[in-house]
């Protein structure tokens, strides 16, 4: 049952995602891509519970590695996007 409930959430979010990016000017393609990329670093919150949990040594280490990678993606992603957009404004 929980699978169905999760699929329900998935379906709704997909539609929201489609609708959000309907009309976007060409200049924003790259920043938008970069910004969305930073959001995909949300894996971090999954990684946190693996890195701090107690389901075996390997699971913890992989969780810590995942948390590291995801943090690089999140922090780097948001900062690069901000730099791109800051550059935009000056022009």
């Amino acid at each position: 049952m929980i699978a169905i409930y999760l699929l329900f959430i998935l379906m709704l979010s997909v539609f929201v995602g489609f609708e959000l990016i309907r009309k976007v000017p060409a200049t924003l393609h790259t920043p938008l891509m970069s910004g969305a990329n930073a959001i995909s670093g949300i894996t971090l919150i999954g990684a946190l519970s693996m890195a701090g949990g107690e389901s075996g040594q390997w699971a913890t280490w992989l969780g810590a590695a995942a948390a590291f990678f995801a943090t690089v993606n999140v922090v780097g992603g948001y900062m690069v996007t901000d730099r791109m957009l800051a550059m935009f404004k000056k022009r």
Partner: peptide, 15 residues
């Protein structure tokens, strides 16, 4: 994770 992942997935495909 599902909501954010799906948002990125769907908006990425559209983009």
């Amino acid at each position: 994770l599902i909501v954010a992942g799906a948002l990125v997935g769907a908006s990425g495909i559209i983009l």
